[in-house]
Each structure stands twice: as structure tokens, then as C-alpha cells.
Amino acid sequence: MITAERKPLEEVKDLIGEARNVLVMGCGTCVTVCFAGGSREAAELVVSLRMATRLAGAPREITETTVQRQCEWEYLDEARADVEQADVIVSLACGIGVQAIAERFPDARVVPGVNTTFLGMPTEHGIWEERCAACGECILGITAGICPIARCAKSLLNGPCGGSEAGHCEVSPDTPCAWQLIHDRLQRLGVLDVLMQPQPPKNWKSSRDGGPRRIVRDDLRLAGEQE
């Protein structure tokens, strides 16, 4: 899933500025599961903003809605009426949702209510960890199903570096060394010899380094036309 963290209330207030009609829009998918921007968090933000408004004494209308997925036009369209009467929309979706609103509603002012953090998963109650950097050329097949691009602090393809000690990465005792994990799992699977072969430089072109990415599936496009 895409994970996110709520922005501090002060920052959200600054982003809203003087706007009179505020719409807080939650998203029912990833950010709901990571407790950052679902309907519950949207309701909480509305309560906090209303309280702040009352203290400030300036009249302000704050409403809330949550759509199933802010990153798809169909779901966004369901909220069109709310969006059109708002002076500002605080989107609690990931950065994709925020941009989807901006794209779908050219006249709407939209600000992010969360910081989109990474692609990851919950590992314990209340803990999420990064797992993938969407590099566009997945190498999990040679790294025992553990991603060094996202999980090694230096994205090494030939780790571990000299900073690996007692299982953790040089950046923090709380960060497991991805290459220690890869080593241990390759060993367990009996294919440690994979680590003897130098891996060539990665083609970062398929990653963000190649510029904004786009997927075109002609088969689906054709099928769509025929429907």
C-alpha cells in the first residue's frame, strides 16, 4: 500500500489560510488502512479545525467527505457538488489523490493534508515499513524476495557495505541491514552463490531517473474501444 502520515495541524491551518468554505476529503483505500487519511481521520481533522476556527473567531464552514479512491475519476466525480462549493479542499489522500483532484477540477484549490511517505506495509501494530521504491525493473528474483533498492540505505546491488554490523544498517540501530536479510535468506534457500557474482549497474531509466513514467497497454485500449 501507499503509506502516509498526517501533516501537523498548524501546517494544515497555514495551507487553508483565509478560506471560508473548507472541504476535508478522505480516501477510502491505502490511507485508510494506514490510519492517515480515511473517513475517521477526516472527521478528526474537521473537529480540530472547527475548534481552531472557534478560537480564532473567524466564521468558517468546514465539511467532510470521503470517497472510495481519490485516484480515480469515477469516485472523484461523486464528490463534484462538494468540491465545487469549497474554497479549498484538504485532501487526505496520497499525493496522487491530491493531483487527481487538481486535474479533474481545474478551478478547485486543493492542498495536501498528509505527507505521502512510501510504498510499504504494516509490520507490527502501529509500525509501517518501506518495501518497494517502484524502480520499474524488479530484481526481487535475485535478492531472495527482499528489495535492496528500497530497503538498503544506499540502494546497493552488491551489498552489504562495510557499515553493516550485527544485522543493522549504519544509518540506525533500528534499521535492519537489507543485505544481511538478503544474505540470510539466500543462505536459508541454499543459493548463497548468487552473492558471489557482481551485479552490473542498474538501468535507472525505468525508475524516476528516466523522467515521469507512463504505462500504455494497447490490448486494454483496444478492448476498451470495442466495448
Partner: peptide
């Protein structure tokens, strides 16, 4: 460095490079 048992092999990898 960790994992200690891998370190000679890491040198082998650098030699192969």
C-alpha cells in the same frame, strides 16, 4: 563487517570485478 562469514566472499566478488 556483517555478516562476518560472508566477508571473504565479498572480497572474492571484488576480485571478480
Amino acid at each position: 563487517g556483517g555478516p562476518v562469514e560472508y566477508r571473504p566472499y565479498r572480497l572474492a566478488k571484488k576480485a571478480a570485478a
